[in-house]
């Protein structure tokens, strides 16, 4: 799975993209966030308040129960501030 991070999530996690292999028991968006939080302090801090984390799966807005699999592009970012 390709993970992308934007804005302050990118800064806190320390990278803008990474390729990961999902554990077998992770199969939705909520599972991905819960698993990421276990990958170290940077992830745990960046994702501490997951109510403000937006997620897109394959460039479409996703919900906690949106299914994910290894070929997906999953992006995590804060609420948008364009315009």
């Amino acid at each position: 799975m390709k993970l992308l991070y934007f804005a302050w999530l990118k800064q806190k996690i320390g990278t803008d993209a990474e390729e990961i292999t999902l554990p077998d028991d992770v199969n939705d968006v909520a599972g991905v966030i819960a698993w990421l939080k276990t990958r170290g302090d940077k992830y745990a801090t960046a994702l501490k308040d997951d109510a403000v984390v937006r997620v897109a799966v394959n460039q479409t807005y996703a919900k906690p129960d949106t299914p994910v699999s290894d070929g997906d592009e999953v992006a995590l970012f804060p609420p948008v501030t364009g315009g």
Binding site: F6, V80, G83
Partner: peptide
């Protein structure tokens, strides 16, 4: 413009005297 502001994935990083700061929604 209303829809774009809340949906389109853009983020503003402001330069302030105290350093760069991400604009909050």
């Amino acid at each position: 413009i209303d829809w774009l502001k809340t949906q389109a994935p853009f983020w503003k990083l402001e330069e302030t005297p105290d350093g760069a700061s991400w604009v909050e929604a």
